[in-house]
């Protein structure tokens, strides 16, 4: 494997804006032909999970911190959105913003403890906190318990409403584009470079004067913020939320998307989300052993292409990343 890839990803490279514009145009035009179909829903869902997977990639790919509890922030964003809209009867737009705020605060609180660790200890602690929130949601009847809670009224958007699949898709696409832009900017910033340095050698970073624990904490909060955005979108999309969104299965799925697409590239995990959901929808309709297939894919990824789908495509294309 070419070691240069690690930095190229982190440092970014001059982009061809035309490529991005073309991708965006395609993403806008193609679904118009699918309007109202099952595929459009799948694409919306893919974009939502792509944001969540990219947010986990900030921690995993750039910070070298494998979180097994990232569903907590996705779930907090989603629960916050549904609960505030339903219980307080206010606009879902405002409740979605509150949901993102709750996820961010949750990440700040949980991260405060988790960032004292790295490696396996970090992984276990994130899992433990996420399980805590999960069991809270399951037990607490007032927020629906294990049945979850629904009844979110889809908000209006211009002349349409998010109840319209095409409007929901286009809105999600805009949020996705903004989130991707923001996260790319982030990983190319001084903060992003410090994050990568910390992943590579923390002793050196500290000796040079970086407060690495604070770097880790901010990365954790930012990852929670973006996961919260994905969760809020998920709530707006479904109008319903259950503890599944907080479960370790959800955390594991996000991890898998990152690994499948290629950690440390942002675009990779977004593609990983798409590949994963596509496989899930097709494989699960053919066989009951869906999880077995997932397991095999995971092992295959780890053993044969550690840089994921995106890393492989990039190498084929002859350019790193």
């Amino acid at each position: 494997m070419n070691p240069r890839v690690f930095e190229m990803r982190a440092a970014g490279r001059p982009d061809d804006p035309a490529k991005w514009l073309a991708a965006l145009a395609l993403a806008i035009v193609v679904p118009v032909f699918f309007a109202g179909s099952y595929a459009l829903g799948l694409m919306t869902e893919t974009l939502i999970f792509a944001i969540a997977a990219m947010s986990l990639d900030l921690l995993m790919g750039y910070g070298g911190l494998v979180s097994f509890g990232h569903a907590a922030f996705f779930g907090l964003g989603a629960y916050g959105t549904v609960l505030i809209a339903v219980k307080l009867g206010i606009s879902a737009w405002i409740s979605a913003l509150c949901g993102v705020g709750i996820a961010t605060l949750g990440a700040a609180a949980i991260g405060y403890f988790c960032v004292r660790m790295t490696g396996v200890a970090f992984l276990m602690l994130t899992l433990a906190f996420a399980q805590l929130i999960f069991s809270g949601a399951v037990k607490w009847r007032a927020i629906g318990g294990s049945d979850g809670i629904g009844g979110l009224v889809k908000p209006a958007l211009f002349n349409s409403s998010l109840a319209d699949p095409l409007a929901m898709y286009l809105f999600t696409l805009s949020v996705f584009a903004l989130a991707l832009f923001a996260m790319r900017r982030l990983v190319e910033s001084q903060f992003g470079h410090a994050l990568v340095g910390m992943r590579e050698n923390e002793t050196r970073m500290r000796a040079m004067g970086f407060a690495t624990r604070r770097v880790r904490w901010l990365a954790f909060i930012l990852a929670g913020f973006f996961a919260g955005i994905a969760g809020a979108l998920y709530a707006l999309y479904n109008g319903f939320i259950s503890p599944d969104a907080l479960s370790w299965g959800m955390s594991g799925m996000l991890l898998l998307m990152v690994v499948l697409g290629g950690a440390g590239s942002l675009v990779g995990p977004a593609i990983g989300a798409g590949v994963f959901l596509l496989m899930k929808h097709f494989v699960s309709s053919h066989t009951q052993h869906w999880l077995l297939v997932v397991g095999i894919i995971f092992v295959g990824c780890v053993m044969f292409f550690r840089q994921g789908v995106w890393g492989m495509l990039a190498r084929r294309g002859g350019s790193a990343t």
Binding site: R185, E188, S189, Q190, F191, A194
Partner: peptide
Amino acid sequence: QARFGSTFNLTTPA
């Protein structure tokens, strides 16, 4: 960067 940069700047490319 450690001495002369601002590590918590999230937007300016390093």
